[in-house]
Every structure is written in C-alpha cells, then in structure tokens.
Nucleic acid binder design. Structure first.
Lengths: 186, 186
DNA sequence: TCGCTTCCGAACATCGTGTTCGGTTACGGT
DNA sequence: ACCGTAACCGAACACGATGTTCGGAAGCGA
C-alpha cells in the first residue's frame, strides 16, 4: 500500500524533466548529454540512473505527462454522443500546444504523430468512408496536421490557435466534402 | 585542372556510401557506428576520416546524389513554359522513390521535407492565391506529401506510384478548388 | 618506369555511458 | 522528537565510440 510518493522523488524527477526540456529547447535533443542534464538539475549521476534507464526514457516520461493531459482534454469532447464539430479536436490540440510552448518546442513531432494518426483513423472510420484506403487518408491528414503544428510552434505561434484551426479546416474540408459529394452522386 | 577522379577515391566513397545505406536500412541511423560502416565496407579508419568529417557528412553525401537526380527530373517538367498538370511533380517524386527503394528507406524524411516545401511554395505562389498565408498552405501540403511518402516507403509500396499520385490528387484538389471557387465568387 | 596520391592500421587521447558501493541526508510514520 | 528506511551523493571504474596522427605499403595516371 504505497503512501504518497516521497517528496525527494518528486523533486528529483521534476528537476530532471525540467532540465532536459530546457536544454533540448536550447540545443536540440542530440546535443544534450546526460552530464548536461545532471549539471543543470544539480542531481548526482547515480541518482539519475536510479530513476531512468537513459536519456530517452527521461524524455519519454516528459511526453507522457503531456500526452495524458491532451488525451484527457480530447476525451471531454465525445462525452455527449453527438458528433459535434469534427474540427473541434484540432482546436483543442492547438490550444494545448499554445498553453505548453516549451515542451512542444522540445518534443519532436514523431511522438505526436503516432497519437494523432490513431485519433485520425478512428475519426475517419466512424464519420465517413472516402472511397480510398483509410490508412492513406489518415496518414495524409495526420502528417499535414502534425507538420503544420510543428511549423507553428517552431515559428513562435505567428497566428492564434483559432486562426490555425480555421485555416486547416479550409485546407482540409474541401477535399473531404468533394469526396462525399461524389460518393453520394455516383 | 583536375583530371578524372582517382579510381581509388571513387571505389572508397562508393563502398562507404553503400555500406552506410545498407546498415541504416537494417538497423536505423542511430544504431549504426562508424566502425560498423568500416567493417562492412572493408575500409581503414583513417581513410574514412580523410573523406568525410563524420557519419553525418557521409549520410548527407548519399542524399546529395539522390537530390540532384530528383531535381533534374523535376526540372524536365517545366521546360516548355506551359503550366501542365500541376500534379505531375507528385507522380515524379513517387516514381523516383519507387526506383530507389533502398535509399528512400534509409533517408529520413527531414531532408526531403525542406526540398519539397520549397517546391510547394514556389508552385503555390505562381499558380493561385488561396486567400491564406502561402507559408501555411505550403507547409501543410508539404507535410502531408512527405508524410504519406514516408508511409508508403515504410510499408513496402502497397500501391503503385500512379495510384498514390491519384489518391493524393483527390485528397488535395478538393481543398484548392473550393478556395478558388470562393475567391472567384466573393 | 616514376612520382605522387591514396590507403592502411595501429596507437593514442578524449568523451559519453551506465554501474557499483560505502557513506550521508532527509523523509514519513509513530 | 525519534527512528528505521529509503533516497541521494560522488568517486571510481569498465566499456565503447569518436576523431587524429604517422610511417610504411600499394595503386594510380602519365
């Protein structure tokens, strides 16, 4: 029956995560060594390896928090059963990134990609059949979305989350609408 | 007045490039060491560093050949001044990838991304104004294209290049056509 | 054949990684 | 406040990868 997590553990892990994110933002993931993280966080070497297998594991743990947070917000959209605005999820993603600029700057798009791909495929399966392989459409739209999200983050949020969602809607919905129309007519 | 390149240089560089590509396909870029490349190519250590600064430089040189080749093929499309099929470039890219499966499997999409983004932006500037920032549209379409290309390569070319180009056309053209129509009407 | 370039390979210094272990500190529970 | 335990420290170590140096051997083009 584990009591509340030891305060030392909390502080150690938080310091390590914060240090890694800072350093990755400053130099990029590849140019950060474990030693750098240790110095920045002021944590002993052996302590690091008592908590994480390696740098990659620490990085993943940073992203896990973020992912859970985002998934929770996404989950709130589908509670009432009604389909709702199919582009609302995009708004949510951009709002989320805008609220966590540091970690979105640090995290590569590869982690995000897998998650968004899955959301996208489920969405396409339930909402409409486009007359072409679902995986192709899902990969296409997921790549576009993650790519433009990364661009937006890298360029320090040159447009508001709302504007980004609107523009993506306009770039995307035409293709979908046209396919639906053809499918209905043919 | 440099004569033809020394045969030894040609053979050395070719062996190194081939070895690196093979190993990257087998294990992924991060899991390949310089030593691995040396063993596979049967080249001495000092010889390697006489030709390339590090592993990254060798990898870049692999991609340069490919890029020049692709750019040449792309260049052949615009020689007659007529606009032609705006989706022909996409066919060319997929045909090219299909003809060089090994190196496309090895090369990450990041190198490709920059190139395709530039082509896309130029294309959008000359062809049509979409009523939203060109950079946004270019990044969106470039990301989608590179993403789906990577997916196609990773999954061992589950559709023909022609089919891929067609599907992308259908996923893309609706959005563009709709924007053009609105701009003309409004 | 001749002169020059390239290649070889062993040795070396340097750096990052991940582990071990005995000693110290700080936490949570009572 | 006290105590047992868990976490932290830091120095030392083994290991592997990187990139450089240099003298000698071999292959190239002319």
């Amino acid at each position: 029956m584990a009591t509340v997590e030891d305060r030392r553990v909390r502080r150690t892990r938080a310091a390590l995560r914060e240090a890694l994110v800072e350093l990755v933002v400053e130099r990029g993931y590849d140019r950060v060594t474990v030693r750098d993280v240790l110095d920045r966080a002021d944590i002993g070497r052996s302590t690091f390896y008592a908590h994480y297998r390696d740098k990659e594991a620490l990085f993943a743990s940073c992203f896990e928090d973020l992912r859970d947070d985002l998934k929770r917000e996404m989950g709130l959209l589908g509670t009432d059963g009604r389909p709702g605005d199919p582009f609302k999820p995009i708004s949510v993603i951009f709002e989320h990134a805008h609220r966590h600029p540091q970690i979105y700057r640090a995290v590569g798009t590869s982690h995000l990609h897998q998650m968004i791909f899955e959301v996208m495929r489920d969405h396409l399966c339930t909402h409409d059949d486009l007359g072409l392989p679902v995986d192709v459409a899902a990969e296409y739209h997921a790549s576009a979305l993650v790519g433009i999200l990364g661009w937006w983050v890298r360029n320090n949020f040159p447009h508001s989350p709302h504007d980004m969602a609107r523009m993506i809607r306009e770039l995307t919905v035409g293709g979908m609408a046209r396919r639906r129309h053809e499918a209905a007519a043919g």
